[in-house]
């Protein structure tokens, strides 16, 4: 019951922050378009007045890729470099706005104006960035210990190739069950920074672990539920975006709108996690 209440309060808090979420969405969209738009221009330049792009109408025809010739290499390099660049920018953007969101969810009263939100984001940016990098390293190490190490051992002992997918299911299950712990610690640590104004990252992580210990099942359960729902949503969203191939102007525009709606929902669900963790930490 307490879990449900926590999730419900988290959802309400996230929903009430819709202006902030829309601001994050707009920022990610503009920056992604800045990377993606040259791709469109590049393709249009390559094809020029050719009608060959009609062959891409119902999906990408790999058979035509060879006809592009040398520009294809440039195109792939541009997409790769753009995606890499955007990943870095994205890390900064999401870390920045997480600072504002946690501030919003740790306030016991009212909301934040946009300028207050940006100010809080800026205040928390450096410690949040440090914490994000540390936690990403921790999660990487956790993944290596749970998945990578056993695979290496199996390969070394058997002298054979990498074990197949199904034989790794138990390891992935352990990994999936362990992940909410680290996510909660990361979120609770940031809650502590946002609430106290401290910039001490390792003390924040300590506070995160203490919060987990104090209310383990509520904390773990909250994150587990939110992560499961998020995962299902992400899978559905990707399935939609990958499989749909609109081929006319208005349909493509509607597709763009709908995929952006999915991004907004995804951002809302991420905010829901932040808010729920903050609620779990403050609940009695």
């Amino acid at each position: 019951m307490k879990l449900f209440e926590t999730l419900k309060k988290g959802a309400v808090a996230a929903a009430s922050s819709y202006k902030l979420i829309l601001l994050i969405w707009a920022t990610t969209m503009v920056s992604a378009i800045a990377v993606g738009y040259p791709l469109k221009s590049f393709l249009n330049i390559i094809f020029g007045n050719s009608m060959a792009m009609e062959r891409f109408t119902d999906g990408f025809d790999i058979g035509l890729a060879g006809d592009i010739g040398r520009p294809l290499g440039g195109l792939m390099a541009a997409v790769s470099a753009g995606t890499l660049l955007y990943s870095f920018i994205g890390l900064l953007i999401m870390t920045f706005f997480a600072g504002g969101l946690f501030r919003r969810f740790t306030m016991s009263w009212g909301g934040l104006t946009v300028s207050e939100f940006l100010k809080a984001s800026a205040n928390n940016f450096i410690p949040f960035l440090k914490l994000a990098l540390i936690m990403m390293l921790v999660i990487g190490a956790f993944t290596f210990i749970i998945i990578g190490l056993p695979v290496i051992i199996i390969m070394a002992v058997s002298g054979r190739n990498m074990p197949g997918g199904t034989s790794l299911y138990p390891l992935w299950a352990v990994w999936a069950l362990g992940m909410p712990v680290w996510i909660f610690v990361a979120d609770a640590s940031r809650r502590w920074i946002a609430a106290t104004g401290s910039r001490k990252t390792f003390r924040a992580i300590g506070a995160g672990f203490r919060a987990l210990k104090e209310k383990f099942w509520l904390s773990y359960g909250t994150v587990l539920v939110v992560v499961l729902i998020n995962s299902a949503f992400i899978a559905i969203a990707f399935w939609y975006a990958i499989t749909k191939t609109p081929d006319r102007g208005i349909m493509i525009f509607l597709f763009f709108l709908f995929t952006q709606l999915l991004v907004i929902l995804r951002l809302f669900m991420k905010a829901w996690r932040y808010a729920s963790v903050c609620e779990a930490g403050s609940s009695r």
């Binding site: 969209m29 992604a32 378009i33 990377v35 993606g36 738009y37 791709l39 469109k40 393709l43 249009n44 094809f47 792009m53 009609e54 891409f56 109408t57 990408f60 997409v79 975006a241 990958i242 191939t245 609109p246 081929d247 006319r248 102007g249 493509i252 597709f255 763009f256 995929t259 952006q260 999915l262 991004v263």
Partner: peptide, 13 residues
Amino acid sequence: HPASRRMMDKLVF
């Protein structure tokens, strides 16, 4: 060139 618009939309997403 609708496909290039669609590809860009997907990449952005």
